[in-house]
Design a binder for these strands. Structure first.
Lengths: 217, 217
DNA sequence: ACCAGTCAATACGCCACCGTATGTATCGCG
DNA sequence: CGCGATACATACGGTGGCGTATTGACTGGT
C-alpha cells in the first residue's frame, strides 16, 4: 500500500518524504525568506513532521542547502536553456531569454535570494555557474547578431543587468511596475533597445537608435 | 582625562557612544550581512561595549533598525539628490544619477540588502520612498529630454532597473564586470543607449529635443 | 512469524540572540 | 563635596534553532 505517492501537494497527504521533498520545501522557504529561512525545524513543521525525519535524509542543514541548490540549478537549466536553445534566430533567442527572465514571481524571488547569499562559498559556485550561462547565451546571441566579441559581451552584461534589475523592482517595489498594456509597452521598449535587429556593420553607430526615435509616424 | 575625542576611528578611542554611532554600525552590518546582521550583541562586541549600552540608547532592536534606515535615507538624499539636482541639463543629470548609482561598493551592498528586506513593512516604506525618488528624478530628466509622460516613465524604469542590476552583478559576481578601460566602455554603452540624445553630437533630426535644450550659451 | 531496513517521534545538550533588572563608574554642576 | 543624570557592565530568564541519541512503528522479504 502507498508506495511513495507522486502527488505534489504541500500539506500532509503523504506518508513518506523524500530528500527531494525537503529540497523543494527548502527552495520555497528561500523564495520567501532568503537562505536563512532554510531552518530545519520550521521546515519540518511545514512538512508536518519533526526534525527527526530530516536528519535521516540529510547529514545536516548544509547538505540540505546543497541539495536545494542543485535542484534549483537543474530547474533553471531545464526551464531556461531548453526553452531557449531551440531557437536558431538570435533575435528570438534573446527575446525568449528576456521572457524567461521575467519568470514566475516565485522563481524571481528565488534567484534574487540565492544570488544575495553569494558570499557563501558554496552558493557562490552555483550563482556563478548560472550567471555565466545566462550571460554566455546572451553573448552568443549578440555575436550571432554580428557584434564584435567585446561589444557582444557588453551588450550581454547590459541585458543581464536589466533582467536582474527588473526582477528586483518586481520584488521590492511592485507598485512601480506598470500593468497590462503599459507593461507590455515597457517590455517592448526594452527589447527594442536591447536588441538591435539589423546589426549590419559593427563598429558603426548602434542601429537600434534609428528605430528608437520615431515615437509616432 | 580623555574628554570625548572627536576622532572618527571605528575601534575604541571613544569613550561614549551616541545613538548615531549605533545606527552607523548597524548600516555597516547590513552592508555586510543583511538586515539580520543587525543583532544587538554582535554589534555591541564590534563597538567594544556590551548590550547594556545599547538598551540605554534604544528601546529595542527595531528602534535601532528604524534609526539606521533614517540615517541611510538621509545619506542617500544628501549624496545623490544634492549632487544631482545642481545640474540643469537633463543629460548631465541622468549621467550623474548613473554614476551615483555606481556608488561605493559598501553603499551598493547596503541598498541591495535593504531592498531585499522590503517585505518588512517598516523597511518597505523607506525603500519605496527612495525608489520613487530615484525613478522620479529619472522621469523628470527624460521628460526634460522631450519624452512623453508614459515614455519618460518607461525609460526611467528601464534605467533604474539597469542601475540595480549592475549593483547586483557587482555584488554577486564581480568577476563578470569588466575592468579598467573595458568597464569604461561598458558604462559608455549603457549611457549612450539609455540616454538617446543625438542633438548635441549630430544636431540632426530631433526637433523636440533640440527645442527643449538650452545649454546656456 | 520474524527480521532488517526505512522513516519518523521524542528527548536532550548546546549556542546565539533578545530583553530586563540591577549594579556601577563617571561627569556636570551647584 | 555630593547628588543626579549619563553611559555603561553584569547577571538572568526566555526563545529558537542545530545536532545527537534513543526509541518506535510500519514495510517487505523469507
Amino acid at each position: 500500500m502507498k508506495p511513495p505517492a507522486a502527488s505534489g501537494a504541500s500539506t500532509d497527504s503523504r506518508q513518506s518524504l523524500s530528500a527531494d521533498d525537503w529540497a523543494e520545501a527548502a527552495l520555497d522557504a528561500i523564495a520567501i525568506g532568503g537562505l536563512d529561512a532554510v531552518a530545519v525545524e520550521p521546515l519540518a513543521r511545514g512538512l508536518g513532521v519533526t526534525k527527526g525525519s530530516f536528519y535521516w535524509h540529510f547529514q545536516n542543514r548544509d547538505a540540505l542547502l546543497r541539495a536545494a541548490l542543485q535542484l534549483w540549478e537543474r530547474h533553471q537549466i531545464d526551464e531556461v536553456l531548453s526553452k531557449v536553445d531551440q531557437s536558431a534566430e538570435p533575435y528570438e533567442r534573446i527575446v525568449r531569454l528576456f521572457k524567461a527572465a521575467n519568470m514566475s514571481v516565485r522563481d524571481g524571488r528565488l534567484y534574487l535570494a540565492i544570488a544575495a547569499a553569494a558570499d557563501n562559498p558554496m552558493v557562490q559556485a552555483f550563482v556563478q555557474r548560472l550567471s555565466e550561462r545566462w550571460i554566455g547565451y546572451l553573448d552568443d546571441s549578440y555575436r550571432a547578431l554580428g557584434y564584435s566579441k567585446p561589444q557582444a559581451r557588453q551588450w550581454a552584461l547590459f541585458a543581464f543587468a536589466t533582467f536582474m534589475g527588473n526582477l528586483q523592482i518586481r520584488r521590492d517595489t511592485p507598485q512601480m511596475m506598470p500593468d497590462g498594456a503599459a507593461f507590455s509597452d515597457y517590455v517592448k521598449l526594452m527589447i527594442k533597445t536591447l536588441i538591435p535587429r539589423e546589426a549590419r556593420d559593427e563598429g558603426a553607430d548602434h542601429p537600434h537608435v534609428v528605430a528608437l526615435r520615431r515615437p509616432g509616424a
